[in-house]
Write a protein that binds this DNA or RNA. Structure first.
Lengths: 170, 170
DNA sequence: CCAGAAATGTTTAGGCTTGAAATAAATATC
DNA sequence: GATATTTATTTCAAGCCTAAACATTTCTGG
């Protein structure tokens, strides 16, 4: 996605209520495009660094980050719901991390359907190094923002989509 | 990506200058995660609607949006630089849109290497309908924000990554 | 106990995405 | 004019991603 939009949308008149109307709608559309652009910009940067410096990817990093936080490991389903990606997706990423020796699958005692996934020592050690770099990349990219600005931005973003987050855990 | 982070980062002492230091770094990292989360949330929503209501995808929508803005069409390379995706990526998306009759490839007179891609009437008509819906989805998702808030948010996001945007066109 | 429902993971088909290699055409250099 | 470089696009290999279909296993209510 990048910059779409196209035509007016709700041509009909709007009363007033909170804040509807064509102008507001257009502004929100522009905001969304800006959010997306910003996100992609940073994401591309991080992805590239991850590839260059660690020959790794963002999804791999995300899986490792989730596992890093829970030393005892996570079930596949916990992993996919925490990362908010599909089950089958996690299967593939985990397969590759396993074959790289960074994580292991271990069976669950009471439930023969389930599997727990855990970082190996090598995985834990690698992730630590990646996390340090990751933080410094982001710090550099967003370095133009003061802590106050960053905090305010977070709060507003939070408010922007709170209604959508009922189905979330964190 | 979802929620990583991991460890302190720059353990070394920081002087003062503008605003560095561990706390600031952590705050920026959290901001990045928030931006990403917000973006993914909206993106997932839009993607799902696009699929349900038009049996289409975001990349297809993006290509059509870019072409909608330029009636005379765009060359493949313009398209990929405008959307900021790789050349080969555009080739695939365009292939599918062509086989759906929504766009056409036409040769360029002076340059037999190049191709221009243009919306067909069917494509133009479909995109108009999609754009109307798209705007209304976004309006609904971000409806909790006033125009003033949205405008302020845009400005801050803009400032946040301006240093990164030297290599951009728009 | 046992049949149906629910939960856990994997597989599959289709599409998106990238970086790198391959083509082919245009341009610059000698 | 022949060679080398650059430009425009496609192809390829690998990985990411989803929804849907599938196989197992567990749970639930008779």
């Amino acid at each position: 996605m990048s910059a779409h939009s196209g035509e007016p949308a709700v041509a009909a008149a709007e009363t007033a209520g909170k804040e509807s109307g064509r102008a507001a709608s257009k502004t929100r559309l522009r905001l969304w495009l800006r959010i997306l652009k910003t996100s992609r910009l940073i994401e591309t940067e991080v992805r590239e660094k991850l590839r260059e410096e660690f020959d790794s990817t963002l999804p791999r990093f995300d899986v490792m980050a989730a596992l890093y936080r829970v030393e005892t490991g996570l079930r596949m389903s916990d992993l996919s719901s925490e990362l908010r990606v599909s089950n089958g997706n996690v299967t593939g990423i985990v397969d590759r991390l396993v074959s790289d020796g960074l994580i292991v699958r271990v069976p669950v005692d009471n439930d023969r359907r389930a599997t727990i996934v855990r970082l190996t020592n090598a995985g834990r050690e690698l992730f630590q190094r990646m996390a340090v770099k990751h933080e410094s990349w982001v710090d550099e990219i967003l370095g133009g923002l003061s802590t106050a600005e960053a905090t305010r931005l977070m709060a507003t973003l939070d408010a922007a989509v709170r209604p959508l987050e009922d189905n979330e855990s964190e």
